[in-house]
């Protein structure tokens, strides 16, 4: 564990806590894409199957359990909670997320480290995570006016990805034989998707005004 990976994990944890806080206390999920949240739940469900087969550390196991629990809790809130579900922008959140799942799965069947059940699902989760933010970004672009919590949520998700890139660079130079092409490339794609959002986020922060995205 190095400082970049810890900072990345903490940003990830913090982003989810922000989202849960918003949903739980304000009882609103306005501006949050259910499609993206469902994709994340699928990402964690397929990636963390190794929770049953291997042990790395208590930290690792607890984080995995948190990510699994929180992603399904958020989906549950948005779909079934009496108050929260009414604030969901269903008509705006129209990205066809099913179209992301199949290509990612086919790609995982073709490009992977090892052709085993867990390994293919793990690879699928990496590809899917890379594009899972797309419905959220499309929703932000559509609604344009982004409330603070949703903006911070996406910002910290992007920070998590950026720290992971620094972590890979650090590990590449400090560990022997550490190279993970699949993880790196899908991670880079994922981080690149945030670039546009980051630009407007930092701009609004510097002008200390509300985040507004161009149409």
């Amino acid at each position: 564990m190095n400082i970049f990976r810890l900072a990345g994990d903490m940003s990830h944890l913090f982003s989810i806590l922000l989202l849960l806080l918003k949903i739980h206390t304000i009882k609103s999920c306005a501006g949050v894409s259910l499609k993206t949240q469902e994709l994340y739940a699928l990402v964690f469900a397929t990636r963390y199957l190794d929770i049953f087969t291997g042990y790395i550390s208590l930290y690792n196991t607890l984080m995995k359990m948190f990510f699994l629990w929180s992603s399904f809790t958020i989906v549950w809130y948005m779909r079934y909670h009496n108050v929260v579900r009414r604030s969901y922008d269903k008509d705006q959140d129209t990205f066809r997320h099913y179209f992301l799942i199949l290509p990612c799965f086919i790609l995982a069947l073709l490009v992977h480290e090892k052709f085993t059940f867990l390994e293919v699902l793990w690879t699928f989760s990496l590809y899917l995570e890379a594009v899972a933010i797309l419905p959220q970004l499309v929703l932000l672009q559509r609604t344009r006016n982004v409330d603070n919590l949703t903006g911070h949520y996406v910002f910290f998700l992007g920070a998590y990805r950026s720290f992971y890139i620094l972590n890979w660079i650090y590990r590449y130079f400090t560990e022997q034989n550490y190279y993970k092409w699949i993880t790196w490339i899908s991670g880079l794609v994922q981080t690149a998707l945030y670039a546009d959002f980051f630009y407007y986020y930092v701009k609004s922060w510097r002008n200390s005004e509300r985040l507004q995205l161009p149409a």
Partner: peptide, 10 residues
């Protein structure tokens, strides 16, 4: 140390 087939990142 990264063992083959073990993913230690989250």
């Amino acid at each position: 140390i990264d063992v083959e087939g073990v993913h230690d990142e989250l």
